[in-house]
Design a protein around this nucleic acid. Structure first.
Lengths: 354, 354
DNA sequence: ATTAGCACTCGACCTCTCTGAGTGCTAAAA
DNA sequence: TTTTAGCACTCAGAGAGGTCGAGTGCTAAT
């Protein structure tokens, strides 16, 4: 199909007009409409469009309808024809305002950023933050609360801190905690989750003379924390926005895509930008069946600590790539700055329950 | 409309048949179909149905279509006619299996339970857990990590524990932390968030000779934690399930409802069961515009600590109330047992970041 | 009180036609 | 050689009309 020789300027102009008009109206674009924006007649445009169709850049939904871009057409548009959309002052202000939340918890912040992205683009958005290497526990602290309650605090190598309130049926003394803490810091740090074996636990138990199952509880929490640190979660917002777009008028199609989006683990596998800051994947360029006729635009941001975050949206191939890319990239920048930059040591954590 | 005199047994039987058939098929039910399940002719059924229509319990989508139940019809069915659906062994087993997750974090557990509810019912589900009284901070602990890093741990009156990693540009000493901790435990406990005023902060700062803004950081975290403890969050799962049901074939309708669901804060306002364990709200009984032609079934569970949790689903008025109520109620029971019962002191918490 | 019978209603579905936007081709103009 | 005007052609979509059948309400007989 697509061949390497450059398109004539005129063909480019036509392709571009078709793409942009189609993005706006969702209706096939006819030669007359295109001619209206050029200095040639519709007949000439027709000839050119026929050739663009031959190159696999345009197609007709049916004979005697206007043309719409193919995935290849969009690709060429995105790579060469699209001009960078510049955000207006109001837009950047809105983003700044929305992002300057006092929320300092990472997950909330991510979820919020996704929501913002979704609202600004009218497409479903997702966001996630992944650590490339596996974390280990750096230190344990046990805080004595009362005779049968203590708080366990663990700090991970990626500077995450988690805690747990432990209530025991029996009484414990401060010294016991003290001892336990020392042992844990000696034997249960700097190891990965799979190294905490039942045999290690029981030998520690014996060495410590622990009859309350303290070691088991603590080790369990350690494992859980490590596992959770490894699992990256994706947040999805505004899935319902899909239904705003005519290409998802077909309920079955919308349903399938929404199901896919809500899976969470699936989203982690989506392509991430490599060199560039924004990656655009158009229709059939997606590997997943569910995304065959949808596009994904995703921006990355750095978080420090070798962590990398992504924020993206999913929508029909007829997507305003220029605007979406600009917005995502701005949000991503803002997010990166908030997390690792300006107020760097504010992120916190939380939680739970007797 | 509906009047207080009891319906004849036969009318009840007819109403019930119509409701159950309609729940199953989503098609208006004709007199012949109903007659098939009774010992009278279709003509008799027709007469009876006409009367039921007069009572406002049934209606016709158009002349010469079968009847469908009105909201009042469903209400009467739910109150008097419906027999308790009993879960099969497989069903209870599946629920038990799914709920016996090792996840001990409250929010994850809630989200999971919602997902389960959604999967089992094919309707969107939501879950939340609300504390009726406002929490206060019970104690502070500051853990020294290194010269410019410490972990702050606060415990709330509702037994929640939260922590935060604080990194300072300047060096601190253990004794400073010690002092800070004492001061905080003396002046910043047992108060609500609005009592932590700037003037209190600055006076404490002066008293302590704090030049690093330590007090401000700590107080900020305290406020944030208290605010977060107050805010209850609702988790929604399976919103896309809406599209499975023919009543939401109309994309606009589905879109509006899904938007409503994704708001989160709105869901907190939904009716909760009072005496009973399951509350059913049918169509126009809902106050919200968005729910006028949808029904909400919600079950409550107790968590101890005066906390109350809810788990519910939203769907079309044509909903299998019996089955849904049974499932929700079972899940709620299971949830309540996990959270406050069997392994009571396992819930933990988490997190974050340099 | 129930039921068989019957005329009637009306949505669902099919077919047919008409319309107009848009095409490709051809032949003339530049 | 490229562009353009002109024209015949195509086809989705909207609308009109027709048929079908499920379901009704009413009446008269049981």
């Amino acid at each position: 199909m697509m061949d390497n020789t450059e398109l004539s300027e005129r063909k480019k102009k036509i392709l571009r007009t078709v793409v942009e008009d189609y993005i706006e109206t969702a209706e096939p674009v006819g030669s007359k409409t295109v001619a209206g924006e050029m200095e040639v007649s519709s007949a000439t445009v027709r000839n050119e469009m026929a050739e663009l169709e031959g190159l696999g850049l345009l197609e007709q939904p049916h004979t005697s309808a206007g043309r719409i871009p193919t995935a290849q057409g969009y690709r060429l548009y995105v790579n060469e024809l699209m001009n960078r959309h510049r955000l207006s002052l109001e837009e950047t202000e809105e983003i700044n305002r929305s992002m300057k939340s006092r929320l300092t918890q990472l997950d909330k912040l991510l979820a919020d950023a996704g929501q913002l992205a979704s609202r600004l683009t009218d497409y479903p958005a997702y966001s996630l933050c992944a650590a490339p290497e596996t974390a280990t526990i750096v230190r344990y602290d046990l805080i004595y609360v009362d005779a049968n309650t203590f708080i366990m605090v663990v700090m991970l190598s990626n500077s995450t801190v988690k805690n747990k309130l432990v209530t025991l049926p029996a009484k414990i003394e401060q010294e016991t905690l003290q001892k336990l803490s020392t042992v844990f810091n000696a034997s249960f740090t700097k190891i990965t989750e799979d190294k905490i074996t039942p045999s290690l636990i029981s030998s520690t138990e014996r060495a410590l003379g622990d009859k309350l199952g303290l070691v088991a509880v603590a080790a369990g929490f350690a494992i859980e924390t490590l596992m959770e640190a490894q699992r990256t979660q994706a947040y999805v917002s505004g899935a319902s926005h899909l239904l705003l777009h005519p290409e998802y008028r077909d309920v079955g199609k919308a349903q399938r895509l929404m199901d896919y989006l809500s899976d969470g683990t699936e989203l982690l596998k989506l392509p991430a930008p490599e060199g560039e800051s924004v990656k655009i994947t158009i229709g059939p360029e997606n590997l997943r069946e569910e995304l065959q006729d949808s596009s994904v635009v995703v921006a990355k941001y750095d978080v420090g600590d070798n962590m990398q975050g992504l924020i993206g949206v999913v929508g029909p191939t007829r997507m305003d790539y220029s605007k979406v890319a600009a917005k995502l990239s701005y949000i991503a920048g803002s997010l990166g700055r908030i997390i690792s930059g300006d107020n760097p040591r504010q992120l916190t954590d939380n939680n739970k329950e007797t």
